[in-house]
Design a protein around this nucleic acid. Structure first.
Length: 495
RNA sequence: GGCGGCAUAGCCAAGUGGUAAGGCAGAGGUCUGCAAAACCUUUAUCCCCCAGUUCGAAUCUGGGUGCCGCCUCCA
């Protein structure tokens, strides 16, 4: 299993610290607004990683935080005359619902920053005690970047470049900050502030923790001092993840994470989709128009490390593709005895511990007959693709090849076995492939009955009573009683 | 200005040394009273440009062009 590590900028063989157990932490959303497709991509990418690692037999502890302490949340709350907690809770719930609707695996743990204040304060105090952080004249606590020799290693930046390379149009109130900070690149661990309701007491005064400290602290307390995989969006590499490394490594004298995995953005007309640019499509809007499978295919046909360009055409193309996969499953009988791990993902959250591993999958597949080694070569090719840094695009192309094979297969039993293989491995990538043909709406059904009655009346006027009686009898079987009045008026009711 | 990434058919996209996956669209066909759907077959002599390394390059090296992201504020 090769995974691309941002730290080394190369694919590395994945070996967890502790045997089959994998500790994975992903930076979750800051809950001050609705999520957009960019967040969905993050959710889907790490969802596939959890699913596939579980397939390989790893027990994944998938922890994804909720950032519920943030200036944007405070501002939103003030605008709406709500508390920060109310705002955060609302958007955290919305996010959870959307992630479920996207058929993603729920995190094993989903810690919130507000639940870890004492631990963050301890963390900061320990950094001060070790000489890596200092209290400024204002009471703010800053991390002293110059104390950490490896600062900039993840983002491939060195201190001198950082000090000299700032964009001139970006610098704001540096003069002011320089009064409090030893170096301009030092970042806040604790910010003293007492004007809002969202503040906590600390040895340095009322205030809020800096953004970076929450992840370092929660990783330490939920997962441990060194974890296997740390993930998130590419925009977090610098400064967020760089700062996390600085904090945690200085405190523990060991690496924070062995693998750094970052997904790229969703672009709109070649520009990053983001809340601040206002060019986003919310997950809710998306789900109203496209199935979770469609969104998933759209996202997973791209390499997770490359940008994906959002377009209605792209989603439409994905929808047609999903339709083809579903079509090839039409040869499936309805009475397949699906194991729980393939069916229980309908409404309730699924946790990583419930995901099937390869042994379970193969055991299930082997219950069906294949007349050659098609299934083995499929599994090999699928795994080969996924083992190469989760190459979902190739893995998906194998699903389509399998779909073609199903259509071309004339032997019914074999056809069905291949269909089961398709459905099962699509599940490993998180696809449901359930028939999503829209159900007939009640009003359409009503018009439909009227249409049949109309056709029947054509028969009656041409005195084809054999046909009209047949239609009446058949409608009655469906629970629809037809009543002819003296004139051409015909009415019906549900019996 | 610094650092990083990307550039492959009409569109999306995989592929990091061995002769271009896959999806959508298009073309031809099967089926069909007609149509639609479905299925089958097919679609890049070539991978932004120039030079080089190599028996061999989309893939490596150097140079160029274009696009994107990050760069001490907020997170």
């Amino acid at each position: 299993m090769l995974i691309y590590n941002t730290f080394s900028n190369s694919k590395e063989v994945f070996v967890p610290i502790n045997g089959r157990n994998v500790l994975m932490y992903v930076c979750g959303p800051t809950v001050y607004d609705l999520s957009h497709l960019g967040h969905a991509r993050m959710g889907l990418v790490f969802d596939v990683i959890v699913r596939y690692l579980s397939y390989l037999g790893y027990k994944v502890n998938y922890t994804r935080n909720i950032t519920d302490i943030d200036g944007k949340i405070v501002h939103k709350a003030m605008d709406l005359n709500l508390t920060s907690e109310q705002v955060a809770r609302f958007y955290a719930n919305a996010f959870a619902k959307e992630m479920l609707a996207l058929n993603t695996v729920s995190p094993t743990f989903e810690p919130k920053a507000t639940d870890y204040l004492p631990q963050m304060i301890d963390f900061i105090q320990s950094l001060i005690d070790k000489g890596y952080a200092y209290v400024s004249s204002t009471g703010d606590v800053y991390f002293n970047c110059k104390q950490f020799k490896e600062y900039g290693k993840l983002a491939k930046k060195n201190l001198n470049e950082l000090l000299s390379g700032a964009r001139s149009d970006q610098v704001r109130s540096q003069d002011e900050l320089s009064k409090y900070k030893l170096s301009p690149i030092d970042f806040a661990l604790w910010k003293v502030c007492d004007i809002h309701e969202t503040v906590w007491p600390s040895p340095w005064g009322m205030g809020r923790p800096g953004w970076n400290i929450e992840c370092s602290t929660m990783i330490k307390h939920v997962l441990g001092e060194t974890i296997d995989i740390h993930g998130g969006g590419e925009d977090l590499i610098f400064p967020h993840h760089e700062n996390e490394i600085a904090q945690s490594q200085c405190l523990h004298d060991k690496p924070l994470a062995n693998f750094w995995v970052h997904n790229n953005f969703v672009n709109v007309k070649s520009q990053k989709m983001s809340k601040s640019l206002g060019n986003f499509t919310t997950i809710g809007d998306l789900l109203a128009n496209y199935s979770s499978d469609t969104i998933r295919l759209f996202v997973l046909q791209n390499n997770y490390r490359h940008p994906v360009d959002f377009s209605p055409e792209g989603l439409k193309s994905a929808r047609l593709g999903v339709g083809r996969l579903i079509q090839s499953l039409s040869s499936l009988e309805n009475n397949i005895d699906w194991p729980d791990f393939l069916t229980s993902h309908a409404q309730q959250p699924v946790y990583p511990s419930l995901l099937p591993d390869k042994a379970k999958i193969i055991n299930f597949i082997n219950g069906f007959s294949f007349n050659n080694n098609d299934h083995e070569s499929f599994v090999n090719e699928f795994e080969e693709a996924m083992n190469n840094d989760f190459n979902t695009a190739i893995a998906i192309s194998k699903l389509f090849s399998l779909s073609d094979k199903i259509q071309a297969e004339s032997d019914l039993k074999n056809k069905q076995s291949l269909a089961i293989l398709l459905k099962t491995y699509a599940f490993i990538l998180g696809f449901k492939l359930t028939d999503q043909t829209p159900k007939i709406q009640a009003n359409v059904a009503h018009d439909l009955v009227n249409l049949v009655i109309e056709l029947r009346n054509f028969s009656r006027t041409s005195k084809d009573f054999k046909q009209s009686d047949y239609i009446r009898a058949k409608l009655l079987e469906l629970g629809i009683e037809v009543m002819d009045s003296s004139k051409d008026k015909t009415s019906w009711k549900l019996k």
